Amino acid sequence: MIRFALRLPEDLHARLTAQAAADRRSINSEILHLLEVALATTSSGTPDRPGSDQAHPAPPRGKPDSSPA
C-alpha cells in the first residue's frame, strides 16, 4: 500500500470526519470508499461533468503542488 500526505481544507476534513463517523469507518476508509465510488462512476462511461470532453480533460484546479518530485 502506498502512503502519502494529503492537505485538506478544514471544512472538508470536518465533513469527511462526520461522514466517516456516520458510516462507522475510519477517515482513511471513508476516503478510499468515496474514491472507489467516484472512479467506478467515471469508468462506467459517465462523464465527470455534463458536456465534458474526455479527449481534452480539464486542467488541474488549485495551486500547483510545491512538493519535490
Results as ranks from 00 to 15, higher is better:
residue 1 M to P: 15
residue 1 M to H: 15
residue 1 M to S: 10
residue 2 I to G: 04
residue 2 I to P: 12
residue 2 I to D: 12
residue 3 R to Q: 13
residue 3 R to I: 06
residue 4 F to D: 14
residue 4 F to V: 08
residue 4 F to Y: 14
residue 4 F to S: 10
residue 5 A to F: 13
residue 5 A to C: 12
residue 5 A to D: 13
residue 5 A to Q: 15
residue 6 L to Y: 13
residue 7 R to E: 08
residue 7 R to H: 08
residue 7 R to G: 00
residue 7 R to C: 00
residue 8 L to I: 10
residue 8 L to S: 04
residue 9 P to N: 15
residue 10 E to S: 08
residue 11 D to F: 04
residue 12 L to E: 14
residue 13 H to Y: 14
residue 13 H to K: 15
residue 14 A to T: 15
residue 14 A to E: 15
residue 14 A to C: 06
residue 15 R to P: 02
residue 15 R to E: 13
residue 16 L to C: 03
residue 16 L to K: 10
residue 17 T to F: 08
residue 17 T to A: 08
residue 17 T to S: 11
residue 18 A to L: 15
residue 18 A to C: 03
residue 18 A to D: 14
residue 18 A to M: 10
residue 18 A to T: 13
residue 19 Q to R: 12
residue 20 A to E: 14
residue 21 A to S: 12
residue 22 A to N: 06
residue 23 D to L: 06
residue 24 R to L: 00
residue 24 R to N: 01
residue 25 R to S: 01
residue 25 R to E: 08
residue 26 S to D: 09
residue 26 S to L: 03
residue 27 I to F: 09
residue 28 N to R: 04
residue 28 N to Y: 01
residue 29 S to V: 04
residue 29 S to T: 08
residue 29 S to A: 13
residue 29 S to I: 02
residue 30 E to H: 09
residue 30 E to S: 03
residue 30 E to D: 06
residue 30 E to N: 07
residue 31 I to F: 03
residue 31 I to K: 07
residue 31 I to V: 11
residue 31 I to R: 07
residue 31 I to E: 03
residue 32 L to K: 11
residue 32 L to S: 09
residue 32 L to I: 12
residue 33 H to A: 05
residue 33 H to I: 05
residue 34 L to E: 14
residue 34 L to C: 05
residue 34 L to Q: 12
residue 35 L to C: 09
residue 35 L to W: 13
residue 35 L to A: 09
residue 36 E to H: 02
residue 36 E to A: 02
residue 37 V to T: 11
residue 37 V to Y: 15
residue 38 A to W: 12
residue 38 A to K: 15
residue 39 L to H: 06
residue 40 A to Q: 14
residue 40 A to F: 03
residue 40 A to R: 15
residue 41 T to F: 02
residue 41 T to M: 02
residue 41 T to D: 07
residue 41 T to Y: 04
residue 42 T to F: 03
residue 42 T to M: 05
residue 42 T to A: 05
residue 43 S to F: 00
residue 43 S to P: 00
residue 43 S to M: 03
residue 43 S to D: 10
residue 43 S to Y: 01
residue 43 S to V: 02
residue 43 S to A: 04
residue 44 S to I: 07
residue 44 S to V: 04
residue 44 S to P: 02
residue 44 S to E: 10
residue 45 G to A: 00
residue 45 G to D: 02
residue 45 G to R: 05
residue 45 G to S: 01
residue 47 P to G: 01
residue 48 D to R: 06
residue 48 D to Q: 01
residue 49 R to W: 04
residue 49 R to L: 06
residue 49 R to V: 00
residue 50 P to T: 02
residue 50 P to C: 03
residue 51 G to S: 03
residue 52 S to Y: 01
residue 52 S to W: 00
residue 52 S to K: 03
residue 52 S to L: 01
residue 53 D to N: 06
residue 54 Q to M: 02
residue 55 A to S: 05
residue 56 H to T: 04
residue 56 H to P: 01
residue 56 H to N: 11
residue 57 P to E: 10
residue 58 A to G: 00
residue 59 P to S: 03
residue 60 P to A: 03
residue 60 P to V: 05
residue 60 P to E: 08
residue 61 R to L: 09
residue 61 R to V: 07
residue 61 R to P: 01
residue 61 R to W: 10
residue 62 G to K: 14
residue 62 G to N: 13
residue 63 K to H: 12
residue 64 P to V: 14
residue 64 P to Q: 12
residue 64 P to D: 09
residue 65 D to T: 07
residue 65 D to K: 08
residue 66 S to G: 09
residue 66 S to F: 14
residue 67 S to A: 11
residue 67 S to N: 12
residue 68 P to A: 10
residue 69 A to P: 15
